[in-house]
Write a protein that binds this DNA or RNA. Structure first.
Lengths: 136, 136
DNA sequence: TCTAATCAATAGCAATTTAATATAGATTAA
DNA sequence: TTAATCTATATTAAATTGCTATTGATTAGA
């Protein structure tokens, strides 16, 4: 599973916020320069994270963005679930028309278990953990 | 993570082969009709599965395809690894230019652990398990 | 009160990937 | 010989991704 830029940039954005929170809200321009990510694309990612109440923002001059909660309480899994986006189960493995198993389809159940195991691992790691260690 | 058609069709194809192996090799046209998947697209998937030695084929009239090994020895995880395709780790989370962690990047390590957990779950389920229960 | 710095929302677009189709051919049982 | 099959590759259409552009709202500070 290749990591898409929404996930990659999303994580770097949050770690950047955690590491630069000391002097008030962090302007998106600063993040853009530090992380070398297009300003306008960053704004879209921030918008997503705001809707999910992971980030909040201060408008106007000297405004910027900051984590909406303690970095100990934001998990890697939260971000990937949000940024990965693609509905985990829009599509069934089998043919819905002929499959009599429906919600008990062993293929879909196994897939779901695997996904749960995946996110369970990611949920062990917080932004605080990462910001202390990453890219320093 | 949405399941792509290569993975979905690939699994249905193998389950179909397992369930229709009795009277010799299974022609792709039969699978196409039963599964309602384009014949030419199926052929491409079969090509991939042949290269991975999961399927083998008999050419000419009355030819067809069959599993290259016992359905107990082909795992869900094998197929997803093959069909998902997208290199699991072409792209690093961090900026390679500035990241001093490289192979020890805690972001990448956590991601890798999560992927391992994901495939580990899928490797618990064989085509035999599925073919006995699926879409009957 | 201005105004420059910032965030906000959405539209548009180019590149890539995915999914599927088309074409031409090789093989072989009957 | 031939019809049924697999093989290989090229092409195309649709969807998604990653990004850019435009317009506008908000507000701290001069």
């Amino acid at each position: 599973m290749k990591v898409n830029t929404r996930c990659r940039y999303g994580m770097r954005l949050l770690i950047d916020l955690a590491n630069n929170a000391k002097e008030g809200p962090v302007p998106v321009g600063d993040i853009s320069k530090r992380q070398n990510i297009s300003l306008k694309y960053l704004e879209q990612l921030i918008h997503l994270l705001k809707k999910a109440r992971i980030i909040d923002s201060v408008r106007g001059a000297r405004g910027g963005h900051r984590l909406a909660k303690n970095s100990n309480d934001i998990y890697f899994g939260d971000i990937i679930r949000l940024m990965e986006g693609r509905g985990d189960f829009e599509e069934c493995f089998c043919r819905k028309e002929i499959c009599k198993m429906q919600d008990y389809c062993p293929l879909n159940l196994a897939w779901q278990k695997a996904l749960d195991a995946f996110y369970h691992e990611l949920d062990k790691v917080s932004i605080a953990d990462l910001s202390k260690k990453c890219c320093k």
